[in-house]
Design a binder for these strands. Structure first.
Length: 205
DNA sequence: ACGAGGATGCTCT
DNA sequence: GAGCATCCTCGTG
């Protein structure tokens, strides 16, 4: 199980988002270890309105205000970008492109691999359809105990890191593509920048 | 099965 | 004060 290195992320998010499908997210929390297989992602980049970085760049693409939350998207590739949505849901992203560009990939859904008990505990859900644990960006963060404490951390080492899956080589899958989900009033909703493992029951609705 | 609406709190203008 | 990369519950049929 090898952690993905920063160089993996120093590319266009449209390339990385599908490349992250099938990879593993590992969280070594004080509660114990949790592992999930990524089944759904979305790409974001400074030059389109759906991205948080969009409002934080000058016309030439340079960073406007380093004090805004979205400045995290301009960090080194492979850094975590975690923010809260609707006041109560945490979202896990990984920074893409070389430092200073402003791009990322949102992890939207995962398939539980290890630590199912902890995930149920964190979600307060027991004995129901297990896909309800992690089939959404807010749900998977709650299940994994991911919040702002893990913001702007390198994702190639504990406590939170992404790895190649086991066993290796991983079983093949087909990649589906669609427009992104939940963006405000048409912002980027024509862009098919969402990727998912076709047929996986763990993908969000 | 599906849709509408409320919860909720932080960020930026 | 508006807006928000969501989730859940409670209506309908």
């Amino acid at each position: 199980m090898e952690a993905l290195q920063p160089s993996f992320y120093a590319r266009h998010p449209l390339v990385i988002a599908p490349d992250l499908l099938g990879k593993w997210v590992v969280h070594e929390s004080v509660q114990g270890r949790m592992i999930g297989r990524i089944v759904e992602t979305e790409a974001y980049r400074y030059d389109e309105a759906g991205c948080h970085a969009w409002k934080n760049v000058y016309a030439d693409g340079s960073l406007r205000d380093p004090n805004l939350i979205s400045a995290g998207l301009f960090d080194a590739p492979g850094t975590s970008y975690i923010y809260i949505s609707y006041g109560l849901h945490w979202m896990l992203n990984v920074v893409c492109e070389p430092e200073g560009v402003g791009a990322g990939v949102l992890i939207r859904a995962i398939e539980p691999i290890e630590g199912l008990m902890l995930m149920q505990q964190n979600r307060g859900i027991f004995g129901k359809n297990p896909k309800l644990l992690t089939n959404g960006p807010g749900k998977l963060c709650q299940a994994f105990g991911i919040d702002r404490r893990l913001h702007r951390l390198p994702l190639d080492r504990p406590p939170l890191y992404f790895t190649t899956p086991l066993p290796s080589p991983a079983e093949p899958f087909e990649c589906g593509v669609s427009p992104r989900i939940g963006l405000a009033k048409g912002m980027g909703d024509t862009l098919a920048w969402r990727f998912f493992i076709k047929g996986s029951p763990w993908v969000s609705r």
